[in-house]
Design a protein around this nucleic acid. Structure first.
Lengths: 189, 189
DNA sequence: TTAGTTAATTAACAAATGTTAATTTTTAAG
DNA sequence: CTTAAAAATTAACATTTGTTAATTAACTAA
């Protein structure tokens, strides 16, 4: 049995036929560390399923600072979803932090499949619900927790985050400087 | 023509039949300022459409501090969505800041309607997409902007926010103290 | 209007975080 | 192993924000 079918099926039941339709609009790719699969101001047309490696999604402020919005670990979906939904340029960059294996999925073809296949429509809805829950949680954490607590929360979600992801990238995710993260690490250890 | 039909139809085209089905599972209510339509640790079953007044949604930390996650102005949907989706107790309180007029909609009956009515399913998906865009934006702002910039951003979204909502409530939304908001107001004026 | 209450501002000091630069540690390349 | 480059830590000082308490302003009820 296909591992990816099992993964999708665990989110929402889909038929093997529906899975086979999705396969037809997907391309397996190996990408190198540093590759930007979604570039700044690109009008994207693809969503991604990450099966190995780590991807980060970041935004650049007017003053040129980078802030990581998300880290993606396998298996997960990564996409500049707002840009896809609105057919607008992406304000986010999606960049491989390590060599990665991904499936590139044509978002608009997927939406066409959803129009006629309620299995897939349900899957898409489930993914949207999952993302809603995820970002609502992040938002509440970013308002209610201080930087130390946010760091401990991240470590709870990704226990070996310190080995996987560099200090600068973690600090950028937490919304603090690398110097401050260093102080926090000293304090909590 | 029904105003509410026009509103829903502007999000995603629905038939008059579908609208009439939704009406059947909805109840119009007038609530007083201070009323909690979703209480802490309630397992909710309703979603709300706000047609007049202001509602806030807040979370309470372990140390007892309140943080506002959202303000709702008419016309908008308000619901403890994560709790509804997971059938779990709500970590949020939804409370009327002023007298309000609302439609109370049975979420699970709505989901049943979505199962058989693709119009409504599309509407639900559109609302989820809208919420995704909204919270992603808030999250990015909360990470990339300082308190002063977040305050100015809120004023851009709700120009008369200072008259509508008290200092304490605004500060709680921004994730700062009322004292700090007072300093910021002095600085930016 | 007046007294009492609540909301907002201000002040003084403490704690957290930013900025810049120097230093140390780790990693990578030869 | 040695050296160069990158990453992480530390230090010193500035800025932002929190905390507590006092003061002022605005609102409410009698």
């Amino acid at each position: 049995m296909d591992r990816n079918f099992t993964f999708l099926n665990s989110i929402s039941n889909i038929s093997e036929e529906a899975f086979s339709e999705v396969k037809k609009i997907s391309t397996f790719k190996k990408i190198e560390a540093g590759t930007q699969i979604v570039k700044l101001s690109d009008v994207p047309s693809k969503a991604y399923m990450l099966v190995s490696g780590i991807i980060r999604c970041y935004v650049i402020t007017e003053s040129g600072k980078e802030f990581n919005k998300s880290f993606y670990l396998p298996v997960s979906f990564a996409a500049s979803l707002t840009a896809l939904m609105k057919r607008k340029p992406s304000v986010f960059v999606f960049e491989a932090l390590t060599d990665c294996k991904i499936y590139e999925i044509d978002y608009y073809k997927l939406m066409r499949l959803c129009d006629t296949n309620s299995n897939l429509k349900n899957l898409y809805t489930k993914v949207l619900e999952f993302l809603y829950v995820k970002y609502e949680k992040r938002l509440v954490e970013s308002i209610t927790l201080n930087a130390t607590e946010r760091y401990l929360q991240l470590k709870k979600e990704i226990p070996n985050v310190d080995e996987l992801i560099s200090q600068y990238q973690i600090a950028s995710y937490l919304g603090i400087t690398a110097v401050q993260l260093s102080r926090i690490r000293k304090k909590v250890s």
